[in-house]
Design a protein around this nucleic acid. Sequence first.
DNA 1: TTGAAAGCGCTACCAT
DNA 2: ATGGTAGCGCTTTCAA
Lengths: 370, 370
Amino acid sequence: MVSTSGPPTVETIATRAGVSTASVSRVLNGHGARPETVRRVERAAAELGYVPNAVARSLQGGRSRQLTVAVRDLRDPGHVAMVRAVQAVARAHGYRLVLHSTDTAADTAHAVADELDVLRGLADGTSDGLVLCPVHVTPEHVEALRTAAQPVVVLGAFPDGVEPPADGVRDDPAAGAELAVRHLVRTGRRRVAFLDGPAGTAPGRDRHRGYRAALAARGLTPDPALVAHADTTVEAGTRALHRLLDGPAGGGGRTGEGHGGGVDAVLCADDRLALGATHALHARGLRVPADVAVAGMGDSPLAEAGWPPLTSVDLGAAERARIAAEMLLARVAERDAGTARTPARTATVAPRLAVRASSAPPARPPGVAT
Amino acid sequence: MVSTSGPPTVETIATRAGVSTASVSRVLNGHGARPETVRRVERAAAELGYVPNAVARSLQGGRSRQLTVAVRDLRDPGHVAMVRAVQAVARAHGYRLVLHSTDTAADTAHAVADELDVLRGLADGTSDGLVLCPVHVTPEHVEALRTAAQPVVVLGAFPDGVEPPADGVRDDPAAGAELAVRHLVRTGRRRVAFLDGPAGTAPGRDRHRGYRAALAARGLTPDPALVAHADTTVEAGTRALHRLLDGPAGGGGRTGEGHGGGVDAVLCADDRLALGATHALHARGLRVPADVAVAGMGDSPLAEAGWPPLTSVDLGAAERARIAAEMLLARVAERDAGTARTPARTATVAPRLAVRASSAPPARPPGVAT
DNA sequence: TTGAAAGCGCTACCAT
DNA sequence: ATGGTAGCGCTTTCAA
């Protein structure tokens, strides 16, 4: 039965153009036909406002032309940057983007379970590949990645010592922290506090390492009293910095004018924390950057929005995501071409420091730039 | 031919369980079968790690279980809030979310063309419905909406005088602006400037109307010199406010201490503008809120991040998107049920004022709360 | 160059 | 309760 109604299909067009469905398909896919045939088919398609059914195409071709991106939380500006970047690449290559965000999953355990579900779901045919930004790569992740039905590129690092189960693009938080602390010390700061994210994470350890390395390189001794942890929110950052300044490291924390014991700079693991830190400083009557310099990490739009505008380490979120998306498409192409599976690739994006007003040298003559 | 290799299908399972594919399908969809059959099918499926092919399901059922959300620009925190809200609803109902963002389209004309493409694309079967947040609803939009192949809910208002071609959920910028100005005046401000977004937009006209209405209600005369326009970025906000304060309305703009001519409050059409405005004020040595109060619109995470934290009108972006997604799913259900097409529904979400430090009453005794 | 027909994986109908 | 089978819309052999 033909064209009872409903949206037009190849069959509708075929009837109207007086050709076979095969010819319609060929013309529509530019596979060549007699000019006359082309004309008639195109005419019929245009008149009917034909739109090919992408689902049928997917079923037939085994490719969905959809890419999936899974991130934890769109409240994180870094994740937004990643999604934007992946979207741009997908779009440029004619792929739709399926967004999976797990931020409804309250706790980490749920988020991990959710990520594993996404990985298994890759077998359902709706996606040709996945860019995954996991909370933390667990052994279960590694296993699931090995057996994934479609190519996956991970935004993050794999646990040490395991054969990478998938392509990955990581940042370098250690180098990032080091970059920032170097800058702070070079501009004359000596008591650099470190406001980190929640304790016990792998990136946290890296950042801490970079922080200590940069201090050590300048002959400064890390002071445990200068390190604090907080959830990555403005509020938590404010509270944590108050606590830190109220502690032994604060050096009174009131005027900050040249006395030896006071904190004169704060590196924060995230722009939201850094904004929170500036709030605490403002509230205590400390001037930023005159009394205390502040630097964040992420270089999100928040950094420019802060007062004063925030010096921040760009860890390359957008760039990483762009690279990941391109790696993924390369894998998809590989699969389409039937090429033999090549080993996992890994890339690292180097950090870059965006210096803004929050870390200008103090009013007093700056320290010698060693 | 059966199970040469490749991922397991209903056929693979059927063979393994010694039943027909029809039985496999029934069991897998919970359509009832003899306990023994259920057991054997489920066992085979589990052993094979079977994942149903969602594409084949879509083709067969005519429903993709995907929803599309199209927004202009993920750099806009309001759009991020919308996407999050739609995602949450979609997810809760077992739908995947396809994200279409047009922010690669540089100019408005391209963005509009892109939106029309999305609307046409609804016929390709990959989406059961669309939540569309258009830059501006053009007559072409109206036409495309009327003939859309799938239900669409628009986040925004339709042009006056036309029969709404689709469901819509709008905000109320006029009421929002009015709310904010009321609050500013009530807390003693008299010279309230208005830093609007780009000139010539429909929401801009609404906001302006609300601004004037609130002033009029208090017997204050709107002063054209107090109104300026800027692109919605922090930078542009800063420049625009400087310009405004340098103009006749600035009243010298230096001390702001009680003289009659000076601006003592600024309402901004967007939180980014508002942040930019605070930067300009800080730079001029004016205190916020002591000398000049500032209020933004959108109540994005930026508002809490600002210094001082920003009073902002929540226009209900997340709430609107949530309602839109639910309306959309209701339409989808309607279609599935074969119910007769009901007329377009329209909802409006009322604004809500989030008062923060940027608009605290001035240090001097506040004006009488009329 | 073109048409007939198989088949992608699934569900639903109709018999049994 | 179960099995055979048609068919969703498309692309792609295979013949002609």
